[in-house]
Amino acid sequence: MIMDTQQALFQYCLRLGDTNLILGHRLSEMCSRGPMLEEDIALTNLALDHIGQAEVLLQYAGEVEGKGRSEDDLSYLRPVDEFRNWRLVEQPNTDFAYVIARQFMVDVYHCLLYQKLQKSNNEILAGMAGRFLKESIYHQRHSSAWVQRLGLGTAESHRRIQQAFNDLWKHTPEMLAAKPYEKKLIDYGIVPDPEELALDWTVQVIRVITQSGLRRPADSFVETYTAHTEHLGHLLAEMQYLQRSYPGAKW
């Protein structure tokens, strides 16, 4: 099947929007569980930014799709296999090192992506990217400082952040992989080439990891299947509970 540009754009926005939504939800689970007050505030602020970005992206996705689905419909009424987020962001919080490693990997990608996406031929995407970029740079400042602090901190903090990177690294091929529908969007100058982003991402991430006294995690097998891990279903069960139990409920 040849997908037309609108459908491709819908899929693209869905992937970006879902990734922000699921990461935002994961971070919101850290509310009152941060290692200290300032960090608790930081993590919930990050959650707010990601959910805000998801709201804008999914609203636009709904408009592009043209079936009258709102951002809330897309968030609360889709089953797990229709979510397009990166597997990385659905991984459980496990411990603070995992939260930071995951955040850092996402932040570096978002900064690179939004820098290029703000020059998109699609004015709406370009406008959003300009807004999101400022937030993502701020996030990256925070997460990369923590990677350094944990990596160069105590033996225990070093062990934990290394463990987190080692464990989460297997999700990077799926996150960096180019999707077939992106080709047309790249040709039209709507979105940047994910292969270039993947190269830049790897260089930047490895630089900070090594500067933090950590080892580059070993590349594991490359997963090409698109199914989610078991964790997303559990997350959605909680996130969608209210709308599933009381359809159409409003504040």
């Binding site: 804008v56 004015e123 709406i124 370009a126 406008g127 300009g130 807004r131 970029l133 400022k134």
Partner: peptide, 8 residues
């Protein structure tokens, strides 16, 4: 509500 140019 417009997003572009981004608020600064």
């Amino acid at each position: 509500i417009v997003y572009s140019p981004a608020w600064t």
